[in-house]
């Protein structure tokens, strides 16, 4: 009923419902949504961290050289979990912009979203580099489904190297 009233008010272009602002009616629903998204992000991070700790204890019996390689893999698996959680959090932040009361707080929220995006970009770049390293050393990349993409990247890289060497020789 309340949602129907809110939709009607939006359709009529009015800013209030029975004397209350539209924000008043929307706030709890946006609140529930952002709450759910935050909890989902929290669960993803908790599972990723627990899996990372479990894997860390599992590799302790290996030799230090193997441990070094496996720790990098564990770290980047955790980074993939963080990346997914960050995407959820950015979605939650975008929803929260509906509720911000002033330009000052909106600008702070924008900075937070910016930090999250930079972190996501850094993480995804790191994972790609690590996957390329794994492919170069003949190992299975962390993201199995992206193997074709990384193979293409490798092909392009080889092609560029060949072209540059050809240019140098000519």
């Amino acid at each position: 009923m309340v949602i129907k009233q809110a939709l009607l008010a939006v359709a009529e272009g009015s800013q209030s419902l029975n004397g209350q602002s539209l924000e008043f009616w929307i706030r709890p629903y946006v609140g529930y949504l952002t709450f759910g998204i935050d909890i989902a992000a929290g669960i993803i991070i908790a599972i990723s961290a627990a899996a990372a700790l479990f894997a860390f204890f599992k590799i302790l019996r290996k030799s230090p050289k193997e441990q070094t390689q496996d720790k990098e893999t564990i770290r980047l698996r955790l980074a993939r979990g963080l990346l997914l959680a960050l995407d959820f959090e950015v979605g939650s932040d975008i929803l929260k912009t509906i509720l911000v009361p002033s330009v000052n707080e909106l600008s702070i929220l924008a900075v937070v979203v910016g930090i999250r995006i930079v972190l996501s970009w850094s993480l995804s770049k790191e994972i790609n580099r690590h996957n390329i390293d794994l492919l170069e050393s003949g190992k299975q990349p962390i993201t199995g489904r992206n193997r074709a993409i990384f193979t293409d990247v490798m092909k392009n890289r080889h092609k560029e190297e060949e072209e540059s060497s050809h240019d140098r020789s000519s």
Partner: peptide, 21 residues
Amino acid sequence: ELESANAILKMGIFTSGLVGI
């Protein structure tokens, strides 16, 4: 990396406090 995960979680609480929900 684990501390980064922690910071991401705390940032969620921070933004919730910021918008007042």
